[in-house]
């Protein structure tokens, strides 16, 4: 078992002929993901390796039966690409693009409300079910298939660090999800926690948050009411100065809200095992899981 993606997921890459899109489409393919189509407007009819390229997502859906899209389209055109995928009936849309205007994402999020599409990201490393399907830019080899831990994170390389420590301790993962570092994103911590709670193979969860917003606090409340599996939490940004955007568009302390201290306190109260020292996360996982 796993959440959101598995060996049956069929992926179209929007922006497959760009530098990043091409590189990561190949990496995903090499990992074993069913990358069966690409979309670049104006390049329909071409091939990227053995993958057919289409002008529109609609065409890709009709000809190849894709149910998941991975988007590398640059920020000015990303909202358009996402909504194209939504209207083509794609169930899972993974948006890697960094730098999409907040206003565009707010419109997209309201647009998909009530529909069948789930968006992961933007500004995220993607999602991987180790050994089955990688839809994203994360290094596949650091993951260990078979579970029993689900990982959800707002970060990219920090997630790799966490996953690597799990793997080195011999702890595998069911699915690892990067929900992205932007203020407005498609899939929340709560969506992922809910999915992990329902997934029978997932026995525990690692949740990696950071400063800014209230997503971690909301997740903590959800956990105390709904999640029966053990959760380990880590929050980055204890030393971050207030009022500064720490790389991620969403990582900013505004006044007294969004601090790492505040999040950690709330999470502790909800029974989440807090990792105080990232260097020792692996050991904490061994003792908790």
């Amino acid at each position: 078992m796993s959440v959101f993606v598995n060996k049956n997921t069929r992926v179209v890459v929007q922006g497959i002929t760009g530098k990043e899109g091409q590189f990561h489409a190949r990496q995903c393919f090499a990992y074993g993901t069913n990358v069966v189509a690409g979309v670049t407007p104006g390049k329909g009819g071409q091939q990227m390796d053995d993958v057919p390229v289409f002008n529109t997502v609609n065409e890709a859906v009709k000809k190849t039966g894709v149910n998941c899209s991975m988007i590398f389209v640059p920020p000015p055109f990303a909202a358009d690409a996402i909504m194209e995928a939504v209207d083509a009936g794609i169930a899972l849309i993974v948006v890697i693009t960094e730098g999409i205007p907040v206003m565009d994402m707010m419109k997209v999020k309201n647009y998909i409300s009530g529909g069948i599409s789930r968006i992961i990201g933007p500004n995220c490393p993607g999602i991987i079910t180790p050994g089955e399907c990688k839809v994203g830019i994360m290094p596949g080899h650091i993951h260990k298939p078979g579970g029993p831990i689900g990982v959800v994170s707002r970060s990219g390389t920090l997630t790799y660090e966490v996953v690597n420590q799990l793997t080195l301790k011999g702890i595998g993962q069911t699915t690892c999800i990067g929900i992205g570092g932007d203020p407005v994103n498609g899939t929340s911590f709560i969506d992922c926690l809910d999915a992990f709670q329902r997934d029978s193979q997932t026995k525990g969860i690692v949740m990696v948050g950071e400063i800014g917003g209230t997503a971690e606090e909301d997740a903590a409340e959800f956990i105390s009411n709904n999640v029966k599996k053990p959760v380990i939490g880590f929050i980055a940004g204890l030393t971050a100065p207030p009022g500064r955007r720490m790389g991620h568009a969403g990582a900013i302390i505004s006044g007294k809200s969004g601090t790492a201290q505040g999040k950690i306190e709330t999470m502790k109260k909800s029974g989440i095992h807090i990792c105080e020292n990232l260097g020792a996360l692996g050991e904490l996982c061994v003792s908790v899981f």
């Binding site: 990219g156 390389t157 570092g181 980055a236 971050a240 020292n277 260097g279």
Partner: peptide, 29 residues
């Protein structure tokens, strides 16, 4: 550091080690 989240976490580690970070610097993925 490469990546914003890991960069913040690295600053926190410096502090935890008893020193103070001089900066935040994300050189990109």
């Amino acid at each position: 550091v490469n990546g914003a989240g890991l960069a913040m976490a690295t600053m926190d580690i410096i502090k935890l080690a008893g020193a103070e970070p001089a900066n935040f610097l994300d050189v990109g993925g």
